[in-house]
Simulated assay, not measured.
Amino acid sequence: MADHRTAQPPAHGPQMVTSKENDVTTVATPPDSSKTEWRPTDFAIKVAQHPRAPIVVALIGVCVTMSVLSDAFLTQRNLTNVLAQSSVVGIAAVGATFIIITGGIDLSVGSNVALAGMVTATAVNKGFPPLLGVALCVLLAVAVGAFNGSSVAWLGLVPFIVTLASLGMGRGLTLQISEGQSVYGLPETLTWLGGGEIGAVPVPLITMLVVFAAGHLVLTRTTLGHKIFAIGGNRQAARLSGIRDKQILFIVYVIAGLCAGVAALILVGRIGAATPTAGTGLELQVIAAVVIGGCSLFGGKGSMIGTLIGILLIGVINNGLTLLNVSPFWVQFIQGALIFLAVLLDAFNQRRLKTAAI
């Protein structure tokens, strides 16, 4: 009699297999299709999707281009000089990163640096002890930050208007105190922070890295940092969750003032004098570095690592264009163009996120 059994399709999962020779039943397990081998292309895709990938690629591209166009670019002396020159902007940008993450802005950083440096240099030249002069510089800059913070947090004023007013007042006071003249002949105790070296490493570079490390730890490892992000993401929701938003905003602007004071000491030490026009345009470079580094002007997004990369990118561009004898006016134009591109990309990203949420 014929066997008319219908062939069944193989079932998924382990199959029972019988061996007729020794009458032993074994289980054959099919290969797990969920486990895939690691491929280099997967790693490349993950790296390309990282938020800071574009700026890192841009930094590498600029470095390669400048090294081809100028033989002096990749020398140890020039690279050290680039890092040291970026220290003033870098330290000021640490404070600006905190502010921009909250959704605010600080246009007074340049005049704050100039005022603190000029008052300190004038006081030291008139017999004030240099170490007390250092303390005076930092305290004065912190006081300006506290004024901005109080106006924004407690009076509810718009950060743009408040810091714009501080910019004008600070620059006017600097010119009045100095009578339009630079102050020279400063003692080495005051200029060491900006012009000294520890071994072969410039003190400004060490100071900048320490400030960035401290800012990174505060932003990522402390409750204050989490509250700053919360306020920048949604201030009303942060307030309803129990965060004292006014106090946090005040602290953020005070931190920015502290960074401006340290930047003032480095600037005075680097040039060996205090000038009434010091820090002019510094706010443009600071905002450019922070925004290019990935901070959103809408608030709630940013990192110290991104800001550091933005600082390096701007420093490399400035140095490279100087080596190529490009007009400083074009350098300023390029900085403005970079800010525009960064803000444009941020606006597109915000629009994309809102569309996806809908």
Rank of each mutant, 00 (worst) to 15 (best):
I99G: 09
D346P: 05
L139C: 06
G156S: 05
Q76M: 10
S70P: 01
L190V: 01
S178T: 11
L136N: 01
G95T: 07
E188V: 00
I292P: 04
L136F: 00
V68G: 00
F147Q: 03
A123T: 03
L284M: 11
V94D: 00
I177F: 08
G168P: 02
A72D: 12
A356G: 05
I248L: 12
L69D: 06
Q8E: 14
L345Q: 14
V290T: 06
G180L: 00
A278R: 07
I228D: 11
I255E: 09
T163C: 08
I55A: 06
L132S: 13
P30W: 09
G269P: 00
S67K: 01
D32N: 12
A342I: 06
V290Q: 09
S34R: 15
A135F: 02
G302I: 02
A153T: 06
G156K: 10
N234V: 02
G294V: 04
S33K: 13
H216N: 13
Y253F: 13
H4Q: 03
P54E: 01
P276T: 14
I105M: 12
A96S: 15
A238N: 14
S166R: 04
V56C: 15
A141M: 08
L219A: 04
T80W: 04
P31R: 12
T102H: 07
L175V: 05
C137Q: 09
L265S: 05
K46T: 12
V68A: 09
I55R: 01
G196V: 00
L323N: 00
T75G: 15
I60F: 13
I255H: 00
G133R: 08
N112G: 04
L217A: 14
I243N: 14
S327G: 03
L284W: 14
N318M: 11
G315S: 09
A96M: 11
K354V: 07
A116Q: 10
N318F: 06
C259R: 10
L353P: 03
S182C: 03
G300I: 02
L344F: 10
S151T: 04
T6P: 04
P159Q: 04
V203L: 00
L205Y: 06
D106P: 01
N349L: 08
L282V: 08
Q15P: 08
I55Y: 03
G215T: 11
S182A: 14
A357T: 03
R239G: 12
A28K: 07
L205M: 08
C295S: 15
S19V: 09
A121W: 01
T191Q: 07
G320L: 06
